[in-house]
Amino acid sequence: MKSNNSLTPSYFQFTVFADYGPLRYLFFSLCLLIYMIIISANVVIILTVCLENSLHQPMYIFICCLSLNSLYGSAGFFPRFLMDLLSDTHFISRPFCFIQMCIIQLYLGHELTLLTVMAYDRLVAICQPLHYHSKMTFRTMLLLLMFVVFYPVCILIYFFYLASSLPLCGNKLHRIFCTCWTVIELSCVDTTVIRIASQFCIVISIFVPLSFVLYTYLRILLVCRRSSSDFRGKALQTCLPHIVTFGNFCISLCCEFSMSQYDADEVNSSAIITLSLEFLIIPPIINPLVYGLNLPQIRKVIFRFLRINQT
């Protein structure tokens, strides 16, 4: 019979990190630079929306929340990852592992839900422009933001409970950060039913928002076909950033979900690191660049702030 200590490891070990030798300092510098870019780009968007009264509208507030979520998710990953790049050992305590797990998984859930809410905002703005201000009131926006915050918590709380309550027979995680499923895979009990139920929940939680976003853009496309070329141009200008960010995030989620379906020994360590970094680096960088450079309302404010600071 296993001892209680073997069933509740006090720490976990990341096994995909290799001994990079002197190259570790180069990797550290590059990742630190990326982290600084993520912070700077998203802070610019947040300050632009907060300081400019003309941007205090649902569309721009949702964009501001997208940047806040990027900072939140990056803070749960990069400090620990940068430390691991310079360290010879890659152990993380059980409490910190679960904290990181919660932050990153909730970052993913909030991002997907927020992008779905933003699709609804564009649907009302383009398909029902005369009713936009009566439908997208401040109260409605707050309710949608509450949905963005609490819906992922309700979905993921079950997986957090499983990861924290199952007896574990190991402590080696074949990842660069903690996730619910990698911890559940260490369980001493049979997890076949849990795996099937988890896959079903994950597919539903991704398929429902994806279906809704596709529906909204089908409606928008039908409206644009019957409208003038000037209207189509304006609609495309406001929808293109959302299409790019949502498409990129869905690709990242599909890569992460596909990787979780394989046993740790079947996946190359380089592939694990690359795919893991993709959804934690690309969206937080792409989102502020796409919205900051493509939307003229935000771009004008940013350039105006830059001119003021230069004088």
Rank of each mutant, 00 (worst) to 15 (best):
S227P: 07
F78M: 04
M141S: 12
F81N: 02
N42R: 07
I38C: 08
L218H: 11
T8W: 01
M36L: 15
L280V: 05
L236G: 09
S134T: 13
Y161H: 12
S205L: 01
A119W: 00
C169L: 03
L47S: 11
V208F: 13
N294Y: 11
S40M: 03
T113G: 00
F98K: 03
F212Q: 02
A41E: 03
L275P: 01
L277R: 02
N5T: 15
C250P: 00
Y262A: 12
G170K: 14
C127T: 06
T113Y: 00
S87G: 03
S3Q: 12
S270P: 00
F12V: 07
Q261R: 13
I39S: 08
T137W: 08
K234P: 05
C224K: 11
V44K: 10
Q199E: 12
L108E: 08
L33Q: 05
V183R: 09
I104W: 01
Y262K: 12
I157S: 12
F212G: 01
L240R: 14
Q310V: 13
S54I: 01
K135A: 02
L51E: 09
K2P: 00
L144S: 08
N287T: 10
R122S: 09
F77I: 10
R226W: 07
S67L: 13
P79D: 14
Y161D: 11
V203G: 01
L210Q: 04
Y120P: 01
T113D: 03
L26P: 03
P22G: 05
V223F: 02
F279N: 08
P241K: 12
G76C: 06
F303Y: 05
S260I: 04
S258L: 07
F160T: 11
S228G: 07
L123F: 13
Q57K: 14
M141L: 10
V44C: 07
L123N: 04
F78V: 01
C201I: 15
T245Q: 09
C201M: 15
F81T: 14
I63Y: 04
I308T: 15
T182P: 02
T116D: 02
N268L: 05
I99G: 08
T191H: 00
F177V: 04
I308R: 15
L277Y: 03
Y291P: 06
I63C: 11
M36T: 15
L173G: 03
L85G: 00
R232Q: 12
L236Y: 14
L221D: 11
T137P: 04
L68R: 06
Y215I: 08
L66N: 10
N309M: 06
M101Q: 05
